[in-house]
Design a protein around this nucleic acid. Sequence first.
DNA 1: CTAACTGCAAACCTTTTGCATTGAC
DNA 2: GTCAATGCAAAAGGTTTGCAGTTAG
Lengths: 153, 153
Amino acid sequence: MRHCTLPNEGLLERMKARGLRLTGQRKILAELLETAEEHLDAESVYQLAKAKDETIHRATVYRTLNKLKKLGLVDELDLMHVSGERHFYEIRPSTLHIHLVCTTCKRVDEPDEAFWDDLKRRVENENGFRPEVVRVEMAGVCAACLRKRARRP
Amino acid sequence: MRHCTLPNEGLLERMKARGLRLTGQRKILAELLETAEEHLDAESVYQLAKAKDETIHRATVYRTLNKLKKLGLVDELDLMHVSGERHFYEIRPSTLHIHLVCTTCKRVDEPDEAFWDDLKRRVENENGFRPEVVRVEMAGVCAACLRKRARRP
DNA sequence: CTAACTGCAAACCTTTTGCATTGAC
DNA sequence: GTCAATGCAAAAGGTTTGCAGTTAG
């Protein structure tokens, strides 16, 4: 299991391939999204970007995130509102997102994708629906918090 | 498979059980949420409510939806942004939500929950995570649109 | 060169809040 | 009667847009 660190090489390349111009601002934003250790909302992206380039503007962040979203290079998540109303952005890792959100410590983990094929096959067979992008979000209690809870009940 | 019509008796009763006062406005809102044929966003809820009671105010709709959300009686969904940025509300059917969103016709279906136990058991065994609320959203092509596509390729 | 992109500021839209009043229990 | 809930209006918050200047390709 990994903790939200996708070694997702080549967002910039994929942006270029889709015809986007690789401006300085976009290079910063792409790098931020690629190396993020946690899910970022628009404001966090803006703050981190501003730390690297004082002149970057909120509007640019919004415009870029929207563009990436429309191209399907980035996805917007609410993580079941466990952390309030914020919306988070992440590079689209594949066609599958699985997020385990701990309601106790707010940590988000992304488990391995072992059951993806089962899930997809079942939906295709039983419902005639052909899944293209799948999002699975579970809110619950993570292993660490379960252990803590067991120690101090 | 059903089409987003949950015979979900008793939202009002559950509200009362949680200590909420059953005002005229809340009765209208509860009925709307219970009988909705499709997922409603806040503005739609407001418009439908206004049709039944001219004096009802947006603030009341927001306050009520928030209250229901915090109590876990209602959930907020983005349905993978297939229909833009709108957020939808639905009565929490159980701890499990499965939505199949067709990217072609925008229809949302909710399949039967046969694989729920598998999914939960696997996450619990493989990741030590205890799921409490599970949301599965799939964007793809529904059976009807696949058939249409097959006829006119 | 030129179309795409940016910064800026204003506009926009959705949601929240303070306050006086109303109404459920 | 009391406290929660409402309507109203104003504020807040987050996001988008028009425009003029800049820059990647």
